[in-house]
Design a protein around this nucleic acid. Structure first.
Lengths: 247, 247
DNA sequence: CGGGCTAGCTGCGAG
DNA sequence: CTCGCAGTTAGCCCG
């Protein structure tokens, strides 16, 4: 395909925010947060209406090179159509050298992007917060007046003995990270309120070494089974895991 | 476009591991690790030779629905071409209902996927490990015989005083996670070797509250400046950050 | 195969 | 803006 014509087609599509598909033999350079070179090969360039710019190979979900929210410019050299994507903050540049174009098409798309997702961590956390007695009898919500930023701690509560309880919910198998996070939150709350504070990690399961770490920290784990996409019976069971500390 | 013909085209491309692009009005359902419904709209389906399956809208880099390593099957109902992607472990299903097809094309692609990336954390870590005196005079490598899995601790060393030194390298702004990680590694090594152990976090910078946490843990921070994609002068500087504890 | 972690993470949301 | 984090994280690597 003729480079001049391709350039014109792309220019027009960019102004209309149409989706652009271009397949051809290209070489890609990137410099910014890291640097990379992608040797010549047949690949697909996908430009979307929000100025996302991605080079896809015929494998993997993720593009091999990409840039979001970039300014796109074109130029024609002796033997290539060069597309350049630029960005500031952080400063990044990506150049795609098309040596031949096998395919180029642009598409007017509509803008509906209203995916409805079920089973997010937030959803689970909110469900649990609705009835804390499900976690432990006598547990009641605790107002965090400027205690911690909203959204940092999943659930903050107070138990029957008047202890503060920091609750971290994970929607999948918990690992070291989850334990470290909870430990950090728990210590923070304990320090700020100067009160005895417990920490409970709630997840479908926990990896063994992470569970040991959790016990060393004096934290607690609760196993949570939940049904996804079934609003009537989302939380299947919530059982306190046997621990050597609290047996 | 005719559904029967489309089905045939897709079937053939799948067997050849050709890239498949299909644009049309569709509705998408997903159930697996989570669940989602994507209302009818014009979108692009991208199937790659490694059986990655993705629905793209005209915004964002990431697909709105996707599945990797899936088995793909097709069927035609009264008014739709239905593509189903399935997977076990974990069990997942995704159905795409195409009500109309604006565009369908398949492409034979080559398989070169040899991106050369510079500036990864591993690269920086290896560079630093080559000359530990750059971090601190008298620092020498320490053999981790079965101490910790390879790759868990970036660098393990011994200082002039005979202390063990656990070093964690981050290629970008360090945050809580980096501090928690280092703390965990440091404690682990300290316990296993029963020796005084230091922990040093090396990164271009560190967020303020994370730095406070680091100091509370008795860990150290070093600022690392590096050039990306410049093999001759990659590490520009390494300076110990002033701390209130060690001033 | 699971566990742990980096990623040019991306994308979102709160302060 | 920045910080912090979830994600159907993805993808890699090491036991």
């Amino acid at each position: 395909m003729d480079f001049e014509q391709a350039k014109e087609t792309i220019f027009h599509a960019l102004s209309k925010k149409n989706m652009i598909l271009c397949i051809g033999k290209c070489y890609v350079e990137y410099w910014g947060r890291a640097a990379s070179k992608l040797p010549k090969g047949k690949r697909m360039l996908l430009i979307k209406g929000d100025n996302s710019f991605a080079i896809h190979q015929n494998r993997l979900l993720r593009p091999v090179n990409y840039m979001m929210n970039c300014q796109i410019s074109q130029k024609i050299s002796d033997n290539a159509l060069i597309l350049e994507a630029r960005k500031t903050k952080p400063k990044e540049t990506m150049k795609v050298f098309f040596y031949s174009i096998d395919f180029l098409e642009t598409f007017k798309m509509d803008e509906s992007h209203d995916l409805r997702l079920f089973g997010s961590e937030k959803e689970l956390s909110d469900l649990l917060a609705e009835d804390l007695s499900f976690i432990e009898p006598g547990l009641k919500p605790f107002k965090r007046e400027g205690l911690l930023r909203q959204g940092v701690v999943d659930i903050l509560a107070e138990d029957k003995q008047g202890n503060l309880v920091v609750i971290e919910v994970k929607r999948r198998l918990a690992s070291y990270n989850a334990v470290s996070q909870l430990q950090r939150y728990m210590k923070q709350v304990e320090k700020m309120k100067n009160r005895k504070t417990r920490g409970i990690l709630i997840a479908p399961d926990i990896v063994k070494p992470a569970h040991e770490l959790l016990e060393n920290y004096g934290l607690e784990f609760m196993k949570l089974d939940f049904d996804i996409g079934n609003p009537e019976a989302k939380i299947k069971g919530l059982t306190k895991k046997q621990t050597t500390l609290f047996d």
